[in-house]
Amino acid sequence: MLEGWDDEQLLTALGEAIKARDAVPSWFVQTGKNAYAWHNVDAELAQLTYDSRTDAHEMAVARSEETATIRALTFTSAHLSIELEVADSSLFGQVVPPQAGTLETRTKAGMTTAPVDETGFFTVAPIPPGPFLLRFGTTDGAYVMTGWITL
């Protein structure tokens, strides 16, 4: 890699490498390290595939203006989707295809659990003030988890 570099060039490259590292706030690095806590959490990660805020145009076409003001999110995994709607202080959700199970709401501070009925509906109230993620457990013992959400 360093063939043809003289000492000055190598020092310049080292300086750039150190500068790039020093520019990063320590909390940003720590956030990355903390993510490893999820390594042992048994769950399939569902990706955010729809957000009414980023897909506002499609929303406006597809729905009336009245409902278009509701924030809606969809997380999709290979096996199921978790659809969310934000209403005031509550979060209403449905698992698709509809099925019963349990829903964990995880924040940095801890975790709460709520039932999911056989039609796949669940409610999270109040909405956590900071970042949170949801983990749905099926009756078969499988888990699907959303990414971090901040509302």
């Binding site: 956030t31 990355g32 990660l45």
Partner: peptide
Amino acid sequence: QNVWLLLV
């Protein structure tokens, strides 16, 4: 959080 969670 999400970038590193995705990588995990």
